[in-house]
């Protein structure tokens, strides 16, 4: 597979360089919203939606900024786009699915400060992806995020039934699980080059 083919970009973002488990992007929701499987899945979907919107917007904005030689404004422009995209998702979710809106609670506005989304926009700029490649990249990254957070939520739901030593309850246990998942995902590294 060529390094810039669409299939490779998708697989690369999905498993080989999984955003959460290999690149450490989006750790906060990964640790914070992964207690229940259903909530984790909807969080993953909402994040993916924001990723796709902001990735497309960021691509167009970057074209404009490069045209006018204003690259130093990139960070501020991207973060503004992401904040608006989150607002958009929040409003539509409030209208179409109030139950989900309540379940996600404070974590919904916090998608803005999810580094996976800004990271995605920055990576696609660094790698000079075109529009189609950016879209596929954001789909892969979103899918990878859902995969990681759902796996983690499944493990944590099972652990509810286990007797855990009292000092390992909470974050320490979740981090250990994350480490094991990350070890597993390192197995995919053989599928293709780094970056």
């Amino acid at each position: 597979m060529a390094a810039d083919s669409l299939t490779f970009i998708f697989l690369n973002a999905l498993v080989i360089n999984n955003f959460v488990l290999a690149l450490f992007l989006g750790i906060c929701p990964f640790l914070g919203v992964s207690a229940k499987l259903t909530t984790a899945f909807s969080m993953g979907l909402a994040t993916t939606l924001v990723m796709i919107i902001s990735s497309l917007c960021a691509w167009f904005i970057n074209q404009v900024l490069v045209m006018f030689d204003l690259e130093f404004l990139r960070l501020i422009a991207y973060i503004a786009v992401i904040a608006s995209a989150v607002q958009l998702v929040e409003m539509s979710m409030k209208k179409f699915s109030p139950a989900l809106f309540r379940a996600l609670g404070i974590f919904l506005p916090l998608i803005t400060t999810n580094c996976a989304i800004l990271g995605l926009a920055l990576f696609q700029t660094f790698r000079d992806y075109n529009l189609a490649q950016s879209l596929v990249f954001s789909l892969g990254a979103g899918g990878g995020f859902i995969l990681a957070i759902v796996l983690m939520a499944g493990l944590r739901e099972k652990l509810e039934l286990a007797e855990v030593p009292s000092i390992a309850e909470g974050a320490a246990m979740t981090l250990m699980l994350g480490g094991i998942l990350s070890l597993i995902f390192m197995g995919f590294a053989g599928m293709g080059g780094g970056g």
Binding site: G179, I180, S182
Partner: peptide
């Protein structure tokens, strides 16, 4: 990457 999770844990 896994080391980061383990050490922080």
């Amino acid at each position: 990457p896994p080391g980061g999770f383990f050490v922080l844990g």
